[in-house]
Amino acid sequence: MKSKLQIEQVAKILKLLGDKTRLSIIAILRIRECCVCELLEVFEMSQPSISQHLRKLKDAGLVKEERRGQWVYYSLNAHNELYVLIEDILEYVTEQEEQIKMIERSNPTQKCGS
C-alpha cells in the first residue's frame, strides 16, 4: 500500500516537473546517472542552465549528486519519499533511449575534462 503524500508536496513536485527540460532530465536519470557535460549533449542550452535545472531537482530531493574526481554525477534519489510518485509519473513518459544513445555516442566525459 502506498503512503499518502501531502498535497503541498505533490503540487510542488508537479510544478517542478511541469518543465519539459526537468521532466526529461528525470526520465534520463531513471535510466542512468549523468554529469552535466553528458546532459549538454541532449539539450540545446548552456551548462549554467542545465546546472540550474539540476539544482532545483536536487533542492527538491529528487536528485542526488556524487563527486568523482573532477565530475559530479547526478542520479535519481530512490530514498526520497516522493520517489514512488516520480516512478508513477515516468510510466506515462516515453523512454529516453535516443537521448541516451546521443550521450553514449559522443562520450562527453572524455572531452569535458580536458
Rank of each mutant, 00 (worst) to 15 (best):
G113Y: 01
R67D: 04
K4L: 12
S3T: 09
C35A: 15
E98I: 09
I26F: 02
L82A: 15
K56S: 12
T94M: 10
K111Q: 05
R22W: 01
I7P: 00
G61P: 03
E33Y: 07
F43P: 05
A27E: 03
Q99R: 06
R32H: 01
Q52F: 14
L62M: 11
V42S: 05
L57Y: 12
L82Y: 06
S3C: 02
S51H: 05
G69L: 11
K15F: 07
K15Y: 04
T21M: 06
R30F: 08
N107E: 14
V10F: 08
E81K: 14
Q47N: 11
T21K: 13
D88M: 10
Y73H: 06
I86W: 01
T109E: 12
F43M: 08
E97T: 11
G18S: 07
I103P: 02
S3N: 09
I13L: 05
Y74R: 06
R105H: 04
I86E: 02
L39W: 02
H79L: 10
G18M: 06
G113E: 04
C34P: 02
A11R: 07
C34A: 15
K58C: 01
E91W: 02
G18W: 08
P108M: 05
E65L: 10
A60V: 11
Q110Y: 04
G69F: 08
Q47A: 13
E38C: 04
V72A: 04
L82V: 10
E98R: 09
E81S: 14
V36D: 04
M45Q: 15
E98S: 08
G18Y: 08
R67I: 13
L54G: 07
E87N: 10
Q6C: 03
H79W: 05
E65F: 03
W71C: 08
L14P: 00
R30G: 07
I31S: 10
V42K: 08
K15H: 03
S51F: 01
I89E: 08
E95F: 09
G61H: 07
E38Q: 15
Q96D: 05
V10R: 09
H53N: 15
M1F: 03
L90Q: 05
Q9P: 00
S51V: 01
N80K: 13
V84T: 14
K56M: 15
Q99N: 13
L82E: 11
T109S: 11
K58D: 03
M1S: 12
I25N: 12
I28T: 09
L62G: 04
L62C: 11
S46N: 06
I13G: 01
W71V: 02
E98D: 11
C37S: 12
D59L: 14
T21G: 00
K64A: 01
Y83D: 12
Y92N: 14
L29P: 03
S46Q: 12
E81M: 09
Q47T: 12
L5P: 00
M1R: 06
S114A: 02
I100N: 02
G18A: 06
K64V: 13
L14F: 12
R68K: 15
Q70Y: 10
L16R: 03
E41G: 01
Q9E: 15
E91R: 14
E95C: 00
I89C: 07
A60D: 04
S106W: 02
F43D: 07
I26L: 10
K58Y: 12
G61K: 09
G61N: 10
A78D: 13
